[in-house]
Computed example of a mutant assay.
Amino acid sequence: MASCVHLVKLSVGTEDVAGLDAWQSSKRAQTEDGLPRHITRMWPKRGDEILNGGSIYWVIKGVILCRQPILRLDEYIGADEIRRCAIVCKPGLIRVEATPKRAFQGWRYLPVSDAPGDLPDGRQEEEALPPEMSKALAAIGVR
């Protein structure tokens, strides 16, 4: 049985968790069956590990703030006829402990041992702090 690994990805142009949720609700960000997806140029080489319980952890303004379980990896061929990977996720964002993350391009693998923990159920519905404040608090060890 394959082990599990997550992905971490910048949510470019997103101001907060609500903005990412709004984007994923648009038809442009969904598969034909209505699930949220992220299209990327590179196909993950560790696909079996990702599909063994992995999530995509979203970085918003330099802070990992939420995640989504990954359901499948679909082939996507756009108008330019280039093969890409659509990372298809379970709908809904799960808020996690705010964790600073430096900028990078594309996506990166995130070992299970390095993944931020989910916020407790009672905190999932709280209004999120602005990413800059979350980043400052995480830098001093307050999550």
Rank of each mutant, 00 (worst) to 15 (best):
Met1Trp: 00
Ser3His: 04
Ser3Ile: 00
Ser3Asn: 05
Cys4Tyr: 03
Cys4Asp: 07
Val5Arg: 09
Leu7Thr: 04
Val8Pro: 01
Lys9Leu: 11
Leu10Pro: 04
Ser11Thr: 06
Ser11Pro: 01
Ser11Met: 13
Gly13Trp: 00
Gly13Lys: 00
Gly13Met: 00
Thr14Asn: 11
Glu15Tyr: 05
Ala18Asp: 15
Gly19His: 13
Leu20Met: 13
Asp21Ser: 14
Trp23Val: 09
Lys27Leu: 09
Lys27Trp: 05
Ala29Glu: 10
Ala29Asn: 14
Ala29Tyr: 08
Thr31Leu: 12
Gly34Lys: 13
Gly34Asp: 12
Gly34Cys: 11
Gly34Tyr: 09
Leu35Gln: 10
Pro36His: 12
Pro36Asn: 12
His38Leu: 06
Ile39Gln: 02
Ile39Ala: 03
Thr40Phe: 00
Arg41Tyr: 04
Arg41Lys: 10
Met42Lys: 09
Pro44Asn: 15
Lys45Asn: 13
Arg46Gly: 08
Arg46Ser: 09
Ile50Phe: 01
Leu51Thr: 06
Gly53Leu: 10
Tyr57Gly: 03
Val59Tyr: 02
Lys61Trp: 01
Gly62Asn: 02
Val63Tyr: 02
Ile64Ala: 06
Leu65Ile: 00
Arg67Met: 12
Tyr76Gln: 10
Ile77Pro: 01
Asp80Met: 04
Glu81Cys: 00
Ile82Lys: 11
Arg83Ile: 04
Arg83Cys: 08
Ile87Tyr: 03
Ile87Gln: 07
Val88Gly: 04
Cys89Asp: 01
Cys89Tyr: 00
Pro91Val: 11
Pro91Thr: 10
Ile94Val: 14
Arg95Asn: 08
Glu97Asp: 13
Ala98Leu: 04
Lys101Cys: 08
Arg102Phe: 03
Gly106Thr: 03
Arg108Gly: 06
Leu110Lys: 05
Val112Phe: 03
Ser113Arg: 12
Ser113Gly: 05
Ala115Gly: 06
Ala115Glu: 07
Gly117His: 13
Asp118His: 03
Gly122Thr: 11
Glu125Phe: 07
Glu126Ala: 01
Glu127Asn: 05
Ala128Gln: 10
Leu129Phe: 11
Pro130Val: 10
Pro130Tyr: 06
Pro130Asp: 13
Pro131Ile: 13
Glu132Asp: 09
Glu132Cys: 00
Met133Ala: 12
Met133Cys: 04
Ser134Thr: 05
Lys135Tyr: 15
Lys135Asn: 14
Lys135Ile: 09
Lys135Ser: 14
Ile140Met: 14
Ile140Phe: 09
Arg143Cys: 07
